[in-house]
Computed example of a mutant assay.
Amino acid sequence: MPGKKEYHDLSFPSHLLTMLGSKTSLKDRWRQVINEANRIDLKHLLTLQAPISEDQTDEMQQEKVQLVIPRQYHADGFSERQQAWLMGVSDFLDEVRKRQASMPADTGGDQLEFTLQ
């Protein structure tokens, strides 16, 4: 899995980099993630806070921040449109696995292994 070394190596393909921030409560603090990890276009943000207004999730989409919330919280006050956009933790892990699988062998980094309990 790419780490700090690969992030700072400008020859490393940025589409293989992943960023996951976390916030216990979002309010307006989710915007802090926008200015982090400039090489990464789509940033992921994990929270347990639900619900979040459609205005906020619309703004997150515009700012290229993908909200990651455990699947069991998706029905707690989120509209159907929001639920279609939300990413579960397992969805996020699947995305990371896909990126790892597409990494050339000589790019470095360690493979991330994980299981959901």
Rank of each mutant, 00 (worst) to 15 (best):
Y7I: 07
L10Q: 09
L10T: 14
S11A: 08
S11F: 06
P13W: 04
L16S: 12
S22W: 12
T24K: 01
L26R: 02
D28K: 15
W30P: 07
Q32D: 14
Q32A: 07
I34N: 01
N35I: 01
N38Y: 06
L42H: 08
H44Y: 10
L48E: 04
L48T: 00
Q49E: 14
Q49C: 05
I52A: 10
Q56K: 04
T57I: 01
D58L: 01
M60V: 01
Q62G: 06
E63L: 10
K64V: 06
V65P: 03
V65Y: 02
V68T: 11
Q72K: 13
H74N: 09
G77N: 06
G77Q: 06
S79G: 12
E80K: 02
E80S: 01
R81M: 02
Q83H: 02
L86H: 09
M87G: 07
G88W: 03
G88Q: 05
S90R: 13
D91M: 12
F92Q: 01
F92A: 01
L93M: 08
D94L: 11
V96Y: 13
V96I: 15
K98N: 02
R99N: 07
R99M: 06
A101S: 12
P104Y: 00
A105Y: 08
T107R: 15
T107I: 03
Q111H: 13
Q111S: 14
F114M: 15
T115L: 07
Q117I: 08
Q117W: 06
Q117G: 06
